[in-house]
Design a protein around this nucleic acid. Structure first.
Lengths: 149, 149
DNA sequence: TCCTTTTACGGCGTTCGTAAACATA
DNA sequence: TATGTTTACGAACGCCGTAAAAGGA
């Protein structure tokens, strides 16, 4: 409690912000309201900022809260991405991203995008095909999400 | 311990990776070696990946460890940035970033970078000076890390 | 009066530290 | 043998949940 913003605190924070109240935020995380209340209070103490305005019946984000909410969301997103990459590496299952672009689409944009993907997710194997758009409908296979286990 | 990667674990992880050993990593964080050992073991269990290869006398990063280390560093960086922004907002103290670039450096790049900074950190006041590089050495002040407290 | 948040208190889990056992060059 | 990591065990700290109190509409 002396040095430490926590990922759990951020999860509580985003849940409350999205749900609109401590109660529903707590319900979303299957936690008691008191736990959420404590966590948010601690987070506010850590940051030295009031995240919510408790003036009214429902808590409403302060300007600081709005700004910091973006940070929290971005951080949680990155954590999920890290876990996802770890799962991929752990299972040895090389995720594959197959992309088919029309011959008319500006290739440099695709190249730049793929480079970003490669930098962010080195474990993902990329495959690029440039074809007239009609053939896409015949050649691409159906994709319904990653298989588990 | 069933669901939760922790920021503390990531701090331990990066400290060990940078220091080159559990012992020196622990020393850097003012913690006992056992604490670091436990934390890293838990992190590995959470991610389902071996982060270090304990074959030799010194632990060495596995390929997965190298990849995930980048994620951890990026996350910790974002957390620090969030805390910094919170401090700025809390104290009302407008942080100021003074940048001096050589006259030969392509200005559009600087402009783009400053725009990004402005988008990410609206509370930071930016100041840009374009000067011949020699004057930098006289005008910039010494920087030896963030002050604490 | 109803709904929501905060506070009090007790239990539980996790983490940390000291110290001994183990492995490697 | 010396350096460094893991394991064992005891203690402390923090978090969560139940329940009662306080604040708005």
């Amino acid at each position: 409690m002396l040095e430490g913003v926590t990922l759990d605190q951020m999860r509580m924070f985003t849940a409350v912000a999205e749900a609109g109240s401590f109660r529903s935020g707590a319900a979303r995380l299957r936690r008691a309201q008191s736990a959420v209340s404590h966590a948010i209070a601690n987070l506010e103490a850590q940051l030295g900022v009031a995240l919510f305005d408790r003036g009214g019946h429902r808590p409403v984000l302060t300007p600081a809260g709005r700004a910091l909410l973006e940070d929290a969301c971005a951080i949680l997103l990155k954590v999920d991405l890290m876990r996802a990459r770890a799962r991929g590496v752990a299972q040895g299952l090389e995720l594959e991203l197959a992309i088919v672009v029309d011959t008319l689409f500006p290739l440099p944009l695709v190249a730049a995008a793929l480079k970003d993907v490669r930098d962010t997710l080195p474990s993902v194997r990329l495959r690029l095909a440039v074809e007239p758009l009609v053939s896409c409908l015949r050649n691409t296979w159906h994709f319904d999400g990653p298989k588990r286990g």
